[in-house]
Simulated scan of single mutants.
Amino acid sequence: MGRSKKLKHIHSIFKDKAKIIKAKFSITNHTTSAIQIAVLRSTTRSARSPPPDHLISALVSFSNTTRHSALACISTIINRLHHHHQPNVYVALKCLITLHHMFIGGSFVLDEQVMMFQSMTTASYGFLNLSRFVDNTNMQSREFSLWAQWYACFLETSLFTSTVLKCHVSLSKHEFVKKKESLKSCLYIDLFREIEALVSTVEEICKVPKSLHCQKNDIIYEVTRLVGEDYRMIQYHIMIRLTELSDRVHNLSTNESSKLIRCLERLETCKAGLSDLFSNRMRNEAFWDLVTELMVKLMKLKEGREVKSLCWKMIEYETESTQFKQLLVLAT
């Protein structure tokens, strides 16, 4: 068994090297060839560690030159993710990590990113199509396969949320200040749609595999770290929108208030799972305090309106009762 694994490992090394040599001597242009080599080197079958920083930086740089290069980077990674004879969970995780870095560091237009992925979608499982991915090499590979499935779903949801926000989930400080200012003129319906998308992304994070001990592995730790960084930014996105709605809370209709309460309840059910996943690294008590404060404010508003509605019904009932008695008197 050990000899078989060793032979597979050696075969993987030679297979990747053969592909790199082929890319070097291919008739494609220099940039395309360089992209293929960078992708192959960053997603090797043999190494069990995350892609090297210098290769990630090279791919992000390529994607920021022209739209053609950006498309070449994305399509090469997607092809690497799916087109190999034997499913390899380390290749899959490295491809997803590389894509994640490109979401964060890529400068090409968000809508174009989405169009790229949608054009590559071959099934109804999402554009990364890893919902059925399994590497049956050994127990650890099967366990890590669940992490690959979860990570792919998170990236799909995150990109969809970015389209709803009309900006990437990860923003620079300058861009975040601009976004915060623009919310003042946002309609309620837009704020609700954005908050719901953000909460859905948080819920997707909470679907993490139960095998949290896997985070001791370098590549799974890197996956968790990147998702954690996005979650930190998602918190800020939710906070600025909840703050804006908190200032307008008395102008919300009963239906809008109920909708926001349900959203906050969904968020609160995620708290324990998030704490377990990130080991309290992303606690941000100010965020959860805001959620609690707004929930209390909305519940008081709801109770006040219910009491007011009940009072009006009683007044209407008494008025109708008095009128009925007067009619009886007149009738006799």
Rank of each mutant, 00 (worst) to 15 (best):
A148H: 02
W150G: 07
Y151H: 09
A152V: 04
F154V: 05
F154P: 04
T157L: 03
S158Y: 02
T161K: 00
T163R: 04
T163V: 05
T163K: 02
V164T: 07
L165D: 00
C167N: 12
C167M: 10
V169I: 13
K173P: 14
H174A: 15
E175N: 15
E181I: 13
E181N: 11
K184V: 13
S185T: 15
C186A: 15
C186G: 05
C186F: 15
L187C: 12
Y188C: 13
I189N: 11
D190A: 12
D190V: 13
L191R: 04
E194F: 05
I195L: 14
I195M: 05
E196P: 01
A197F: 03
V199S: 01
V199Y: 00
S200P: 04
E203Y: 00
C206Q: 00
K207S: 13
V208L: 04
K210A: 12
K210Q: 15
S211M: 07
H213M: 11
C214W: 03
C214P: 02
K216E: 14
N217C: 10
N217L: 14
N217T: 09
I220D: 01
E222M: 08
T224G: 06
T224D: 04
L226G: 00
G228Q: 03
R232T: 15
M233S: 14
M233F: 11
I234S: 06
Y236M: 05
H237T: 06
I238D: 01
L242K: 00
T243P: 02
T243Y: 11
T243R: 10
D247Q: 15
D247E: 15
R248A: 10
V249I: 10
H250E: 13
N251F: 14
S253T: 13
T254P: 14
T254E: 14
E256N: 03
E256Y: 05
S257M: 12
S257Y: 03
S258C: 10
